[in-house]
């Protein structure tokens, strides 16, 4: 979710967020969050040339770079995540950050810390809450954000930014999956991974959710 801040900054007309978590049986694991705005790169390039878009000032590319550097540094420093690495493709506007976590609590803390840094650049308070939980062989993707009111305040033009945007979650496990609570989720051939792909507009307007409770065998 921290990447959402970036999106709200520039409102590209099309983007994709990919959230991947590989979970070990002991609750530790590996995560990788990616935002891919390559389909909107021409628009973003054009917007970055302007002072303002839809009445809002356009931040400078240096602001993004600084925010990403700070977020990465925070991940490295706070000790919740190890082997932190990031990729920044400024030609195609694809950014990803990955690392290993000891348990999902550490992952939650790291995400919230990153959110604080990114949101600082927007001057808005971050929503601090847990995004994942794992106990008794149940891995859950939590989602309690209510973005509907903020969305309503956007102009029609700004709302278009979310029309074709996608949110993809992929969770991989060492043991087979018994059941998933989200009806839009699909299991892999081996039954050890689950993928959920939804439209971000549906997520914001609460038509669909990324909330998912996965029972492992």
């Amino acid at each position: 979710m921290p990447f959402a801040a970036l999106i709200l900054f520039i409102c590209p007309s099309c983007f994709e967020i990919i959230e991947e978590v590989n979970l070990n049986e002991d609750g530790s694991g590996f995560f990788c969050f990616t935002i891919n705005m390559s389909q909107s790169k021409l628009n973003i390039n054009s917007m970055l040339l302007l002072d303002s878009v839809n009445g809002r000032p356009v931040p400078k590319i240096e602001d993004f770079k600084e925010a990403l550097t700070q977020a990465e540094a925070t991940l490295k420093e706070d000790g919740n995540i190890t082997n932190v690495s990031s990729t920044k493709n400024w030609d195609d506007y694809i950014f990803s950050v990955s690392g290993n976590f000891k348990n999902v609590q550490a992952l939650n803390k790291a995400i919230n810390n990153m959110g604080i840094i990114i949101n600082k650049t927007r001057g808005v308070p971050p929503a601090v809450q847990d995004n994942f939980s794992y106990s008794d062989k149940v891995f859950a993707r939590l989602y309690n954000y209510n973005l509907m009111n903020d969305y309503k305040k956007l102009s029609e033009k700004d709302k278009l930014a979310f029309t074709n945007a996608k949110y993809t979650t992929i969770y991989r496990f060492k043991t087979p999956i018994g059941s998933c609570s989200n009806p839009d989720a699909i299991k892999s051939k081996s039954g050890k991974a689950v993928m959920l792909k939804i439209n971000i507009k549906d997520l914001i307007t609460n038509n669909k959710t990324i909330k998912n409770s996965i029972n492992l065998k």
Binding site: I18, N36, K41, I170, R172, K189, K192
Partner: peptide, 23 residues
Amino acid sequence: VTRKSYDYDAEFNSKEKIDTTIQ
């Protein structure tokens, strides 16, 4: 415009691919 997107195998491992679109 070329853009990068992803293909997924049976285990949802992603593989980068290049699409072209007209803008």
